[in-house]
Amino acid sequence: MDPQLTTTAELPLPVNAARAVSRPVLGALGTVGRFGMLLLELVRALPEWRVWVPRALEQCEQVGYGSLLIVLLTSAFAGAVASLQAGYQFTGNIPLYVVGAIVSESVILELGPVMTGLLLAGRIGARYAAELGTMRVTEQVDALESLGRNPASHLLLPRVIAGLVMLPALVALADATGILSGWVVAKSSIHITNADYAYGTHRYFRTFDLWYSVIKAEAFGAVVTVIPCFVGYEAKEGAEGVGRATTTAVVAACVVILLLDMLLAKLLL
């Protein structure tokens, strides 16, 4: 008889308590371990560039083109709102050019990368988790391995590379769009002159800000691809499991983006 199957009621309390604590802890450690293994697999797949480069290009097209419109739209609204609020808060004896500074800095440092990251967590993260989850539960991953092919180089790495390549590009476009829309809105709402807005944008700008935006974009690019790939890859039990994996992947990616956002601000600014 399996010792685990004895009813827990007969066991002394400390044993029950130890089990209640140890099981989730061990489960979490196992997940962390498998996540580490996945990262290792990704690195080990790098030499197989013949396999992953063409597939990564396909994925780049999906991530880039596919997300372009929604990213531009969102960043345009974010820039506009930042501009309206700045105009509302800083009227009076504060010089108008400050609005230009506030809009551009908040777009470059925060709104551009974070909004793009969260959008892609939904768009790309959900898609990748569902794709890989479906491939897992329909044995396509097993099939790939049975053919002596490496799922890391065929399935995972192309997706992660696409995220790392396309997110900075999307964030750069989002930044530019946000600043431009902020400008247009500021002109009509508080009647700022072009010269003032441009001056404000330059006044507090450091080259590092752009790097910071790119670093964030890379980090978020990794988050919105690696986490969904991992969660999808671990999916179990049919359609329901894929659904669960998709939700988990999106939520986890969003939470990690917000955590990283704070962490990077603390470390780099």
Binding site: M135, T138, E139, Q140, D142, A143, L144, E145, S146, L147, G148
Partner: peptide, 14 residues
Amino acid sequence: RTRIGYAFQTGALF
């Protein structure tokens, strides 16, 4: 694995 062919139950086609 290149010496073994595995035909999956439902095909497991990509």
